[in-house]
Design a protein around this nucleic acid. Structure first.
Lengths: 184, 184
DNA sequence: GCCCCAAACTTGTCAACGACTAGATACCGC
DNA sequence: GCGGTATCTAGTCGTTGACAAGTTTGGGGC
């Protein structure tokens, strides 16, 4: 705390990580720019200079989230993973990056038309669609697959079904994802 | 507007419907107790008397939402609908009651352990689980089915996939739900 | 028919927030 | 080592949620 210099060094980065922490504690609604500034140890108006406003901060956070998701999906693909693995990667991302994931799909919280954000979102979306290879109806299959993993991740994160299944979310997610493409 | 008496008559009901309207305009984050009071034409502290605080109001709204959902699911069941119809009913509810649906699955916005809320939630949950009849693995099937329709509804409402499919959400939802229980 | 009490609502206030403005400070290219 | 600019601070405004205390109203007991 003694190294309180005028120039922080990388305030933008510090604010983003502090935001992740704060959201993890009290949700994106409880997030405050002033509280954030206090955590990092700067004045209450410092965040405004890096992100135009509160929504700007969350926009950056959402973009970073899609970035991370895309990276994770690309990794699984390069590792030779099939659709199920992609779905598990999606769920694992959502669970281990709750704050990012929550903000990513909340258009009312961020500037949804931000160029950086839309670019990152489309990148992740393309990877996601590529992961699904269904011969019959590829379009419906892609939407179904995305809906399934997204729904599972959301329900898990909100605590809607954790009471019955308090095992490893990735393991349960795998069984659920496999259910979609079973053959009987 | 001339009938501005001291006792409103049914302020609680009026506040809830006003809240639905306000959330529909600017999301649950943009909702304000004072703004709500202004819409209904009462003092800024009147809402506090009916719902303890902002979260209390949203708790009541969420409970009402689960109530409505349960009613809709029960109706489809009594009409002899199968799982697909139940899924469509779920999606239709989510789309036509955006405000309710949004608050229902946001534990950070309401008092999640409220007795009225949990009762309504469990009622809806039971109906939902009953709708799925799978001989192989009923538990996984139930979670998969719920995840699928919930994910689809969420993604649709947030505008994540409406660009490709701007048809009737119920119709698309039906195709997606049918995909889960196809036999090839 | 009246009185009184509890429920419903109002007015006033406080700390905290987001956004804005103007000013102070320090890094960096020249 | 100088100037310009990005970075950050300090101060302020309107608005919010929550709380406290007072006022009005309807209705049940007599």
């Amino acid at each position: 705390m003694t190294d309180r210099r005028y120039h922080h060094g990388d305030l933008r980065r510090a604010l983003l990580t502090a935001a992740v922490e704060a959201i993890g504690e009290s949700g994106p609604g409880g997030l405050g720019l002033r509280d954030l500034a206090r955590r990092v140890g700067v004045s209450h108006a410092a965040p405004v200079h890096h992100f135009r406003d509160k929504a700007g901060l969350l926009t950056a956070l959402a973009a970073e989230g899609f970035e991370l998701l895309a990276r994770s999906l690309a990794e699984t693909r390069d590792r030779g993973g099939d659709f199920i693995d992609q779905g598990v990667a999606y769920v694992e991302f959502a669970v281990s990056h709750k704050a990012h994931f929550e903000v990513m799909f909340r258009p009312d919280l961020h500037h949804a038309d931000d160029p950086d954000l839309t670019a990152a979102r489309e990148r992740a979306g393309a990877l996601l669609a590529d992961g699904v290879t269904d011969e019959e109806d590829p379009r419906v299959a892609a939407v179904a697959a995305w809906s399934l993993v997204h729904g599972f991740a959301t329900l898990w994160n909100t605590g809607a079904l954790s009471r019955e299944h308090d095992e490893d979310p990735a393991a349960v997610g795998r069984r659920v994802a496999a259910f979609l493409f079973r053959r009987s």
